[in-house]
Nucleic acid binder design. Structure first.
Lengths: 214, 214
DNA sequence: AACATTTGACAACACAGCATGTCACTTTAC
DNA sequence: GTAAAGTGACATGCTGTGTTGTCAAATGTT
């Protein structure tokens, strides 16, 4: 009897699900910009709702709490970045170096153009909770897979012959991420080409080095 | 007239400064273990004081706030790590590989032995505040210098000939840090030798690769 | 012994944040 | 037109935290 919400009405020409999804998206957008602007710890649910033009009730309609929003925003942005990079790979001419350069360019270009995304991905995600740390780990692994597929596309098989590839690919991802962090922390003062070339150098050096000892 | 604390007395056989320094150290220790155990955001000043066996008043005697304590703890631990590594370098035989391996071993061994240190250094420091992010940046730069001096000791001059060495060294530091993060997040399940060898591989590959193109 | 300082346990206060609730006002459905 | 659902602005309860204050017991000084 007390079960009320059986049929959500249409409202302003949109169904209940549509409105809900739209609000959720507004919150995701607002979350990105508030988290990325003032940082996760300083961001309050209220300020996020204000930025989204919604009230707090709708926040808890879509997300259990602030941390859940951060998780979704993070996933959305990492997915977006991967998409951007895959798109860049697809458009690049199938020359080894141009291929890799296109992916790196897409990555760093996005970070430079969207400081909020950079801050969120590079700084705000770690140390919030075990759950978020785990999300970070998974995202890094996915980027490692991306790089690995890139490497095999480049025909650089040397790494694949080594034991503990996973660790090495994780290291390469970490190198790029750290270069990006440094870049952001120094106000993007280095030219993007220097950033890209240096990252590329690490990749190529690692891939081309036929390990003798170790 | 109201200036009371002109001469601190001796108490339990220690001078005022000694007692103050001792309390400060207790708080630093407690901060490390509480931050490293339950994470910075979840750590309260009260719980840190309880762990230190002190009351809150003494907290604010030594530190302006929780963030200031984190900064000091972080600095103390990075200094400690650098010391450990320098010590390992000093003891290692002057063979290129053994040299590098000794430093990496010291680094990873410390992290494995002291999960609190690992969590603090690898996860808790980022995204807290701009000040702390800056501290992270500086610490990473110092580790980069350490690696650079290691590289020149090894007589690997290839990197030094390249432009934007800073970026490349930052990348290498990032690679090691990321490998450590991944190791920690997977419960240190990889054997430490695999971790060290993979890190070393990245170093040696980078150093030995005579860049042709790029 | 008598008094001042140091300490520790704890109370008190202000404040901010999360999460939920209230209520008048719009928009839709019938 | 009327009733019900949706919405938005705001209020409320609650919890935790930072920070300061109180006071008796312990320790040192004279």
């Amino acid at each position: 009897m007390t079960e009320t919400n059986l049929k959500p009405r249409r409202y302003r020409g949109a169904s209940g699900d549509q409105r809900r999804a739209e609000r959720c998206q507004q919150l995701l957008d607002a979350g990105l910009y508030v988290f990325g602007d003032i940082g996760y710890p300083a961001s309050s649910v209220r300020s996020i709702c204000a930025a989204a033009g919604l009230t707090e009730r709708y926040f808890y309609e879509s997300f259990a709490n602030k941390e859940a929003l951060l998780a979704k925003v993070y996933q959305a942005q990492t997915d977006y970045l991967k998409e951007i990079m895959l798109c860049a790979f697809a458009k690049a001419e199938r020359n080894s170096e141009a291929f890799a350069r296109a992916g790196l360019h897409a990555f760093f270009d996005t970070l430079q153009d969207k400081p909020a995304v950079a801050r969120l991905l590079l700084f705000e995600i770690l140390g919030v909770s075990d759950t978020l740390d785990q999300l970070y780990y998974e995202a890094m692994e996915e980027f490692a897979v991306l790089i690995r597929s890139l490497a095999s596309s480049l025909g650089l098989a040397d790494i694949s012959a080594r034991p503990n590839q996973d660790i090495i690919y994780a290291g390469l991802v970490g190198a790029v991420i750290q270069i990006a962090r440094r870049w952001a922390l120094t106000g993007y003062s280095d030219p993007i080409d220097a950033i890209i070339n240096s990252s590329l150098f690490l990749f190529v050096a690692t891939a081309n080095y036929a390990a003798p000892t170790v």
